[in-house]
Design a protein around this nucleic acid. Structure first.
Length: 420
DNA sequence: TCTGGGGTCCTAGGACCC
DNA sequence: TCTGGGGTCCTAGGACCC
């Protein structure tokens, strides 16, 4: 058996833990630049029918009128709260697959004859007691069914956030209850294609011939079909897989026209992704840089371009990547546009030990430099050392807007919760 | 005025090899 | 008259996830 534990309205719940005055009140969390709604607690959902990813400017009046509290996203806080939850889950099973910031699959094999519902309730209660975060628990023989069980736990009040599929009758009942679009792995397009055949529930989907599923939905759809039918196809992953691509791209706080400012943002991103790459003990073969104007705007002239640089020797060296990134950016930059976003992406990722050098280059003589660089930044703070291009001395004109960010209660001494 | 960010996997088709 | 068979690698595009 497999359990799926996920946190209810995770970001909003994290904010409420440190703001008990908001318990029972509507709370939403906004995306970077306070652009869209990315999380809403049940009170907020009930009150205003807020569609996720709705641009904030369109609904701000409505939110204010209904007394909704909004927060800018505070990923430092959410990441650390997530760690706490995952650590508690490890007390319940030796095999925990962290699937996302707010959910994990855990292995319960060998426990089939225990009272799994009681075990699920114990998880839920212990997590709430230690972290203040509410979670839902779904337990079933396969991952896809565990996802559905979790959904049922959350949607049907009488289950009190824990639901176990431990019999054929419960499996069928749950499949009949679930809509096809609610199944994990079936998105908008496939749901539509399935509904066009006159099938609406997850159960109906399991009755479709496998040949049809395979043809329309590839092997991915076939696995979903089998998992729903009780055949496990998706194993739990003990270790996180190394990343195949590492990228970052963020919208600027305001539109930018000057190359120098875009260059600065680009170097920040390269600094970030190369650090992630080094933590994975890898090097990258390719560096992609892209640049975009605001495609929502009808008034602005549009321009999007990207360029992929093949590095002479795979590297994770911030300075080499920065120099290459700058050259690439100069190639695609065109003056006269109001730019919205710059992004970088490292790919062709290989383990450090496998790097193939050229005939005329020796292995990186300055390898120790990056180690020292990371060590110092870890000890004294993120950008204690940084490429000059980043110019960390001044206020960043391109920086994200986060007007309503809560304190980083759990990671910054200066931002600890104070009780008056 | 204002619209997020970071990923994965699969397939078809082209180009190429012997 | 009649033109094989078995592969690999790469990329773009589609679909999905949180």
């Amino acid at each position: 058996m497999i359990a799926l534990i996920d946190c209810n309205s995770f970001y909003a719940s994290c904010e409420q833990v440190f703001r008990p005055d908001l318990i029972g009140k509507p709370v939403v969390v906004l995306s970077n630049n306070d652009g869209c709604v990315i999380a809403a607690n049940s009170e907020a959902k009930a009150l205003t029918q807020i569609p996720m990813f709705e641009p904030v400017f369109k609904i701000k009046d409505q939110l204010v009128k209904n007394g909704v509290t909004f927060f800018s996203s505070n990923y430092t806080l959410y990441g650390e709260m997530s760690d706490r939850v995952m650590r508690i889950l490890k007390e319940f099973s030796p095999l925990v697959e962290i699937y996302s910031i707010d959910e994990s699959f855990i292995d319960l094999s060998g426990m089939e004859y225990q009272d799994l519902r009681a075990y699920g309730i114990e998880m839920k209660e212990r997590i709430f007691k230690y972290t203040g975060l509410p979670v839902g628990v779904g337990i079933a023989p396969t991952k896809v069914l565990a996802k559905l069980a979790n959904r049922r736990a959350k949607k049907q009040k009488e289950h009190e956030h824990v639901y176990v599929i431990d019999s054929e009758a419960k499996r069928i009942e749950t499949l009949q209850w679930a809509k096809i679009k609610d199944v994990w792995g079936i998105g908008k397009k496939h749901a539509q294609r399935i509904q066009e055949t006159g099938r609406n529930s997850a159960f109906d989907f399991t009755q479709l011939p496998l040949s049809w599923v395979r043809k329309q939905m590839t092997v991915v759809g076939e696995r979903t079909w089998r998992e729903l039918n009780g055949e496990s196809c998706l194993a739990l992953e003990r270790l996180p897989k190394p990343k195949k691509a590492i990228g970052t791209a963020k919208s600027f706080g305001k539109k930018l026209e000057k190359l120098a400012l875009i260059e600065e943002a680009c170097s920040y991103y390269i600094n970030e992704v190369s650090e992630v790459l080094r933590n994975q003990n890898c090097c990258a073969n390719y560096l992609q840089v892209f640049l975009q104007t605001n495609y929502h705007s009808e008034r602005d002239k549009q321009y999007n371009n990207s360029i992929t640089v093949t590095l002479e020797v795979p590297t994770n060296n911030t300075f080499i990547l920065n120099a290459e990134g700058k050259k690439a950016l100069h190639k695609i930059f065109k003056p006269g546009y109001r730019y919205k976003k710059v992004g970088v992406c490292l790919s062709g990722i290989v383990p450090k030990e496998y790097v193939q050098t050229t005939l005329f280059t020796t292995t990186d003589e300055k390898a120790g430099l990056m180690e020292a660089f990371d060590f110092i930044n870890q000890k004294f703070g993120k950008t204690t050392l940084a490429p000059a291009l980043m110019d960390t001395r001044k206020i960043k004109e391109w920086e994200l807007i986060k007007e309503e960010r809560s304190p980083r209660y759990t990671t910054q001494w200066k931002e600890l919760l104070t009780i008056v």
